[in-house]
Amino acid sequence: MEKKAEKNISNDFSKMVNEKNPESTLLKDCILAFVIGGLICDVGQFFMNLFLSYGVSNDDIGYYVAAIMVFLGAFLTGIGVYDDIAKYAGAGTVVPITGFANSIVAPAMEFKNEGYVFGIGGKMFVIAGPVLVYGVSSSVIVGLIYYFLMR
């Protein structure tokens, strides 16, 4: 391309790219995300009620539900189903804690070939690591602020 032509095209280019860019199917995606995300929470609610009826205290109930949901997410990932659901559900499967489990199990499985220490061990938190880093750090900050403001 000649210099001038190159400049012309480069000026128009981003506009052309955006024009051709197809819209994500937002409405359909949102409905699917809402329904499937809702269903996952329903499953959580089911277990919550179940454990409550077995006399688990209100304070501890969160632990039980979190553990069982994490197990379900991990299990579905292990048998290779979670990513198939996620294809349709999008954020519906990313945002619940099952998605957190998925983000830990998937790399652990994937990097098994690189060994048990550096593969599974090292790569397990490739995606979920930042969530813990920012979640825990901000909770420490919250605790500190609370300490200095409330005391």
Binding site: F71, A74, G78, V105, M124, V142
Partner: peptide, 29 residues
């Protein structure tokens, strides 16, 4: 401030690590 956050979420995090490890042992992508 340093103990509370992780303590409250220990169940979820430990479960994720443990089940993640088990799943990685038994299945392949």
């Amino acid at each position: 401030a340093f103990t509370g956050g992780l303590k409250a979420t220990a169940a979820g995090v430990s479960a994720a690590i443990f089940f993640g490890y088990i799943m990685a042992l038994v299945s392949k992508p």
